[in-house]
Design a protein around this nucleic acid. Sequence first.
DNA 1: GCGCCGATTGGCT
DNA 2: GCCAATCGGCGCC
Length: 202
Amino acid sequence: MASSTTSRRAATLPVSFFRRPAEVVARDLVGTLIISTVRGVVTAGRIVETEAYLGHRDPASHAFANRRHARNENLYGPAGTWYVYLSYGMHWCANLVCGTTPNEGAVLLRAVEPLDGLPTMRRRRGGVADRLLASGPGRLTQALGITLSLDGHAMRASSVVVQAGRGEELDVATSLRIGITKAVDWPLRFAVRGSKWVSRTA
DNA sequence: GCGCCGATTGGCT
DNA sequence: GCCAATCGGCGCC
């Protein structure tokens, strides 16, 4: 069972939350809670940074122009599907599929503020400073124990769920996406302004 | 088949 | 700030 901070109420986000444009979902995911349960071990935190990718119309998307491959197959799945891929041959990155048509878009999770299971996260991350536990797309998957085994699963029925936040006022800043070389001027990155848990300031 | 590049990270200069 | 690690996709021969 979940402990302390995140347990209150299990308001897992409905599929309808994801049946909207990726940039809208990306903005609204900031402030929500992500809870991972791996072999009974719970780690959780608050999503503080995301990026939207606009599917077949986005040159930076893995499925631009509807190029279809084994790796990106799940970008064509229904809203609320996990899309997990290997970045630079060594880091897992986690996305949630959005929209109402195949390959319409997805949201990359870029940073999480750790709330529960800190000892587990520290062990998985090799004892780095807490600020670096989940402040990056590759770091947060490692801290939460996310791997390719999550790829293609429906979020609501998977080992990693996203719940509604606490409804508090959040100052969400919009900025340019990070680490890409195509469509670099599209303002599709969303982050809690001033948060020390985001991947970097830009 | 071969070489280059990437939605990254961490270690070193 | 620079660069290696590591591997699937892609372009090109």
